[in-house]
Nucleic acid binder design. Structure first.
Length: 612
DNA sequence: CATTGATTAATT
DNA sequence: AATTAACC
């Protein structure tokens, strides 16, 4: 493929019926036309799509270095006896997480050791103490959350027209497609109009791209040795994104003191995989032409979503470890073993990821305080102490978040408890709306749940973990606003809610039916397929005079049918389609899926905690 | 190979 | 409402 000329297949990759050769890396150099450049909302099918992942290097360690004004000295962050972060200078001594502290000290005599902040009995706020004791203290990761928010803010301010999705405390995905397209048109205005003699007008391919230097700000992940790949417009797009990415990264390093590493590629999972190509304080570009070479030798368990049980199952099933090893497994075979996961695993291995970068609200949807106990709780009454500690932390964090956004309200409070090595059990309850969220309020709710969870047990208990969480954190609704008149002044929350409602409206004309009165009904009779973006709707015959439940059922059947369509298309692309799986109906497949679930390993027998 | 303390989303 | 799985 490396040496083959640009393929002109036209149309979307999913419409083609031609057989796949070379195990499927067949869409690395799509023809890009004037229409592609001018089109605004191509989404995941945009041939000029550019996605980046940027993460902070040894983030917790970097936070402590900034806090303490330390530069270029080996440092580790400790949580009780365990090392949870190692900065890059310390890594040069071969120190890793999972090393014992004594081993680390042996390797580096002047190693700086910082223990994470903890809540200490009798103190109102978490702090950095000379002595810490896991029997009485509770870890606080709040400082890192705050620093993380600063980094995110700089991304947002430094990258207008870039969609940003916070993925964890130290990393974010960014969709540069829109910003890059604007810049492409600014730099190369001739892309905006097809020449008058172009044979197919706007559908004519773009002229050859200018010669640009890709490696100015980035490492360029190589394609196969000795192969030469002509520059494409997608490569130009990647390099423009790289330029923007570099600018913010340098800015963040200078203003906040955090170095970051980024990967830039055509989709999320490749961006993530490319970010680790070179660290620290580096960024890497993965050109389309380098995808096969980068992916094939990669242990597939390094791929996002394949790092867990699914990846484990794949490794066991085929007794292999790299992407290459899995490329000759047909989609049909995958499907038999992995059901609805089959298509996207199959696609991941071939460098395809249809997940979109989606902006998330700045505030987390949940807030959890958790405590592991090496001395287990043996009496129900001893639980109260830790619940109060956890409640105190939640109170502090929620009230802190309310300083930024005073409409915040957690809709539920959840208590988890783990007995020995069993899976943890939980109880939840609605959390009352209150302007003043006090430790007592949370602790009382927690204690009630605790009693429900462990209350009527007889015999000995050994609770090794308790955690208390707020979930469903969001902006309070109008109904709640009236309860104590807290929001009378603002009114912004309800305005935002109304705007969100407007976003959720579906186009009515597609529905061809007038007994639809609210969004719930609308969502029950049509949906947009995330794969092909087609809107699928029930016919009026299937909706008129039907109950809501009947409509939902009919829509589910339609969804299954539509999924089958994609499956059949995908199988048709294969070198050796598996005739058996092609013909199985969706109901047969869903029966098979249920059967697989049933065959899953049995759960623990003993139920220690009471179940209501 | 791990721990602990998170967070999010999907499933039932 | 409760559990499970994934990631860092």
């Amino acid at each position: 493929m490396a040496t083959s000329p640009p393929v002109s297949r036209g149309k979307s990759t999913w419409k083609g019926k031609e057989k796949v050769t070379e195990q499927g890396y067949d869409d690395l150099n799509p023809t890009i036309t004037y229409r592609h450049i001018l089109q605004q909302n191509l989404g995941i099918r945009d041939p000029l799509r550019v996605v980046a992942l940027c993460d902070s290097d040894a983030f917790y360690a970097a936070c402590e270095m900034v806090r303490l004004g330390v530069k270029d000295k080996p440092l580790v962050v400790l949580q009780w006896e365990g090392i949870i972060a190692v900065n890059y200078p310390a890594r040069e001594y071969g120190i890793t997480r999972f090393h014992k502290l004594s081993d680390a000290k042996e390797r580096c005599a002047d190693l700086m050791i910082v223990h994470v902040a903890t809540y200490k009995e009798g103190e109102a706020e978490p702090g950095y103490w000379d002595e810490v004791d896991s029997r009485t203290h509770k870890v606080s990761l709040d400082y890192y959350r705050r620093e993380s928010a600063k980094v995110l803010t700089m991304f947002k301010e430094g990258l207008p027209d870039v969609e940003i999705e916070k993925a964890s405390i130290d990393e974010a995905f960014m969709d540069f497609t829109k910003a890059v397209r604007q810049e492409l048109l600014r730099r190369y205005p001739y892309l905006a109009t097809a020449p008058s003699d172009a044979p197919n007008g706007l559908d004519s391919p773009l002229p050859a791209p200018p010669s640009i230097e890709l490696a100015t700000y980035s490492h360029v992940i190589p394609a196969e040795d000795g192969s030469v790949h002509q520059l494409t417009w997608h490569d130009v797009a990647l390099s423009i994104a790289a330029e923007m990415m570099n600018k913010v990264r340098v800015d963040i390093a200078e203003k906040l003191g955090y170095t970051t590493s980024a990967g830039i590629a055509r989709n999320k999972f490749l961006a993530k995989l490319s970010a680790s190509y070179k660290k620290p304080y580096s960024q890497s570009i993965l050109r389309n032409c380098a995808i096969p070479n980068y992916l094939k030798p990669m242990p597939f368990q390094k791929i996002r979503f394949l790092g867990g049980k699914l990846g484990e199952a794949l490794a066991k099933e085929y007794d292999v470890s790299t992407v290459q090893d899995l490329l000759h497994v047909s989609l049909g075979k995958f499907f038999l073993k992995f059901g609805e996961n089959a298509i996207w695993v199959y696609e991941l291995l071939r460098g395809i990821d249809r997940n979109e970068v989606k902006e998330k609200s700045i505030v987390n949807k949940s807030m959890l305080a958790s405590k592991n106990l090496q001395k287990p709780i043996t009496k129900a009454s001893d639980g109260q102490h830790w619940i109060r500690v956890l409640a105190a932390e939640l109170a502090l964090r929620l009230n802190d978040a309310r300083k930024e956004n005073f409409h915040l309200w957690p809709k539920t409070v959840v208590l988890h408890a783990r007995q020995g090595y069993e899976v943890s059990r939980s109880k939840q309850a609605p959390f009352p709306f209150s302007r003043e969220v006090t430790v007592d309020l949370i602790a009382n709710a927690g204690n009630k749940l605790w009693t429900e969870l462990v209350g009527n047990h007889t015999g000995s208990m050994k609770v090794t973990n308790v955690s208390l969480a707020f979930t469903g954190i969001g902006v309070a609704e109008e109904g709640q606003q009236n309860i104590d008149g807290f929001f009378r002044a603002g009114g912004q929350a309800s305005k935002r809610l109304r705007e969100n409602d407007a976003d959720m409206q579906e186009p009515d004309e597609l529905l061809g039916n007038n007994d639809v009165h609210n969004e719930r009904d609308i969502s029950a009779i049509s949906f947009a397929c995330s794969r092909c973006r087609k809107r699928i709707a029930l016919s009026s015959a299937q909706t008129t005079g039907k109950t809501h439940e009947e409509k939902v059922q009919a829509l589910d059947a339609l969804k299954a049918e539509h999924e089958d369509f994609h499956f059949a298309q995908a199988v048709a692309r294969e070198v050796e389609p598996d005739p058996d799986t092609q013909t199985r109906s969706s109901t047969e497949r869903s029966v098979a899926k249920k059967k697989r679930k049933k065959e899953a390993p049995a759960k623990g027998i003993e139920k220690f905690f009471s179940r209501k």
